[in-house]
Computed example of a mutant assay.
Amino acid sequence: MTSPLSPTATTIVTFRELVRRLTGSSADSEELPVNTTSKLFLKAFPHGGLTGPRWSPYTNQGTAGMRNLESDTPVQTPPTTAMETPRPIVVRDVWQDNLEQEFSEIARALHHHRFVALDTEFPGHVFPAPCRNHSKLSPAENYLSMKRNVDATKIIQLGLALCDANGDSCLVWQFNFRDFNKETDLFNPDSITLLERQGIDFQKNREMGINSVDFARLIVNSGLLRNPTITWATFHGAYDFGYSIKILIGRELPFDLMKFMGLVVHFFGYRVFDIKNMIRMCDGLYGGLEKVAKALGVDRVAGSCHQAGSDSLLTLHTIMKLKNVRFFGKFLIEFQLVLYGLEVDRTRLLTAPKFPKIIYVMHPGNCCLSIPYCLQPIKCGPRVFQGSYGGYYV
């Protein structure tokens, strides 16, 4: 039998009924001594109500539902609301028909989402590197191997994941390109089989995919590029930046590694971080993205592996967890602008003056892009006209 003062008793009684139960007398017919109320209060609240939870004999919900002891009227308290369940993260697929609309959404999101993770899917390595172990090759050799593959193949997907400074409110976009043609373009058969197994429909990409020229025009106008407030994250990001820059400049990558890194700075700024490089300083962290994420306790919450949108989101969650767990919530400047396998003298990039001259390249489709004048191709056309702002039009 439950005591009338037990916290599990939920029956609501009046004050006089409580008096009758505690004193064993009839509260309606007997005169109560002056100090009866004080004795009853101390019996119900042995600590005088000054310490411990403020439990009420009328309910097991703390002080909610307490009655006014003078009027026997329940005190109305606002109902407690349950915590809202966080909405699941959805990877937004982008095709040619919704490309402009989705870039408009990205431009609006940039007001509060300043951390961006980048990932790409491509047809694999068609020209194997001289050595499978990247650490045994010089940065220049790694770059030439990457350049050779990027120049010879075409991008399939590009993923962008955005979040705020706390790693919350994540937004993910997956751009599906039409450039790659399985019937005519070079590819690694094992890579294409893996991508098909993960759900990429190459025929749909050819029919509904994005024209990379339109992508370049819209991403330049979105506010993502040349924005010093944005921090970029990748995992082993040489190829991710390689394909991105190839799209942006509309031509093959430069032969010189320093010129390539100059393009990275030109378009993406100085706040560029590669997780693969950062984990060199972390004991127990090694391997690919999935293995590093698992070691940090990061789960894939949307999509499947080897799809650019899902991988970019996992990259974003991993670098935020890595920052908080291993680097005290800070992005260390020593990791800035160091892409794994393409390590260069960062002081030359950080202290180099801005490119004094700019070339404005007119893509088909009236897309005007600016690239450093020093990267002018050997054959750039019969005439080069100086622009009104110190640039050069090709």
Rank of each mutant, 00 (worst) to 15 (best):
V116Q: 05
E100A: 09
H112W: 12
H125A: 15
H134P: 10
S138P: 09
D93C: 08
N60Q: 15
P78Q: 12
L69W: 14
T120K: 02
P128E: 04
T81Q: 11
T120I: 01
T80S: 15
P79E: 01
E84M: 06
P139Y: 04
A64F: 15
M66Q: 12
F127Y: 00
F103D: 00
H134E: 11
N68F: 04
E105D: 11
Q61V: 08
R114Y: 07
Q101R: 05
D119G: 08
C131L: 08
T77G: 05
V90S: 10
N68E: 07
H113M: 12
R87V: 03
S138Q: 14
T120H: 03
S104Y: 00
P123W: 02
A129R: 05
K136E: 14
N133T: 02
I89K: 05
D97C: 05
D97T: 09
R132T: 13
V126L: 07
V116Y: 00
A82D: 05
A107V: 06
R92F: 12
A117G: 05
Q96G: 01
S135T: 14
R108Q: 06
F122A: 02
E105W: 08
R67G: 15
K136F: 13
L69C: 09
A107I: 03
A117P: 09
D93R: 10
R132F: 15
N98R: 00
H134W: 09
T77K: 03
I106A: 04
E100K: 14
T85E: 01
A129Q: 08
N98V: 00
P139L: 08
F127I: 02
Q101W: 03
P130M: 04
N60H: 13
G62Y: 09
R67W: 15
R108Y: 06
W95A: 06
P128D: 04
I89L: 00
P79Y: 03
T80I: 15
G62K: 08
E121A: 10
H134C: 10
R87G: 08
A107H: 09
T85W: 07
L99P: 03
F103G: 01
Q96A: 07
N98H: 02
V91I: 09
G65P: 01
Q96R: 03
E105S: 07
P123K: 10
E70T: 15
P123Q: 01
S104F: 06
Q96P: 07
K136N: 11
L99R: 02
N60R: 12
H125D: 13
